[in-house]
Design a protein around this nucleic acid. Structure first.
Lengths: 193, 193
DNA sequence: GCCTTTGTGTACCTATTGGTACAATATTGT
DNA sequence: ACAATATTGTACCAATAGGTACACAAAGGC
């Protein structure tokens, strides 16, 4: 049962690691911070993640990607009712990003050179999100070209809303911006159902 | 003439400092990096910026804010022709952010806790940008509430476009997203001229 | 030409960085 | 119970972090 145990503890450390990376960035999250955040000593940390910080971040990214795949991407891709799926996406995303107060780790990684080791994962996350949303819109009768534009606008718009909401320090701006994106997608779906 | 000399050299170091901070973030930009980027030794750096990295970043932010005030905010606020001013803003912003490949230092600062010392400047930058754009739209006949929404969408949308364009590594997505924001603003102006 | 101010390189400081080694301690299957 | 394995804390390491001190070099003004 040892292998399972390792996986379990490693997995249970991921949320704390993710929050620490979100808060301080990849470079700013020192081992001392990560140790305090997880409650694990350096020995345990390097036992679970022999590759050090880089492996920790990689595991965190995989974890995030898995969550989004289950909660966001797959529901969009297999939506029976596109409007309901779009509404669900916005609800989940708003909760996940804590109304814009919580940084999107994947997006933030792309901004500085510290995240250059993870470009493939970062790129995949965004392309899959946009593709899933576009497919959902298409399945609701939206023309492919328009669907691609709307999906790109929505996903990048959510990222921008996070940046702005954190910059001005108010959730309200995130909620306003995201609500307008939601309305735009629903309106596009409404015209073709 | 010494005072002028100091100011001159200090100012001439700001672009290189800004690029280094953009590239590596505040924490990631070590003094060694900053020294190499500016061509100045540690002695000179601390002569010009006795407050260390924090003062360097503060000076860089003031410099950026000054540039935006001159090139973006003021033209928007005093626009004689709103549509021309909006077009000018998008042209200048696209050039400044290098079609989304160049990070917005102000936006990035708001994302991690390292930038918490600069929250006032970060917040001021965004609120002034949005207010200037909204005023420009209003002066073109757009209703105040709509103008505020459109301005918020455009500014946050530009930030999101930078995040996405860097994440997927292609300028094209930045250009597409920004073009749609430009069109939305021009259309709103067009309906009221 | 001198004297003060401004600029610069180098040496140095302590604290912390990411990472390793390893002994001690659970925990495990058998 | 016992041997193997997994986990953990501690000590340690070289490298680098940001920052200071200071001797020295330009460059002024007069």
């Amino acid at each position: 049962m040892s292998a399972k145990r390792v996986l379990t503890d490693r997995a249970s450390a991921l949320p704390a690691l993710a929050e620490a990376f979100r808060e301080h960035g990849f470079e700013g999250a020192s081992l001392a911070i990560l140790s305090k955040a997880t409650g694990l000593g350096k020995g345990s940390l390097y036992n679970f993640f022999p590759g050090g910080k880089e492996e920790m971040m990689a595991a965190v990214l995989d974890n995030i990607d898995g969550w989004f795949a289950d909660a966001i991407f797959t529901p969009l891709e297999q939506a029976r009712d596109p409007a309901t799926a779009v509404n669900g996406m916005f609800d989940d995303v708003t909760a996940y990003f804590r109304s814009g107060q919580r940084v999107c780790l994947v997006g933030a990684l792309g901004l500085n050179s510290a995240g250059s080791a993870f470009t493939t994962k970062v790129k995949g996350y965004f392309t899959r999100w946009i593709a899933a949303l576009a497919r959902c819109l298409e399945s609701g009768g939206v023309a492919p070209a328009l669907a691609a534009n709307l999906a790109e606008d929505a996903v990048s718009g959510i990222q921008g809303a996070i940046v702005l909401a954190r910059a001005v320090g108010e959730e309200a701006s995130f909620l306003r911006i995201v609500a307008r994106h939601r309305a735009a997608l629903l309106e596009a779906l409404g015209h073709h159902e």
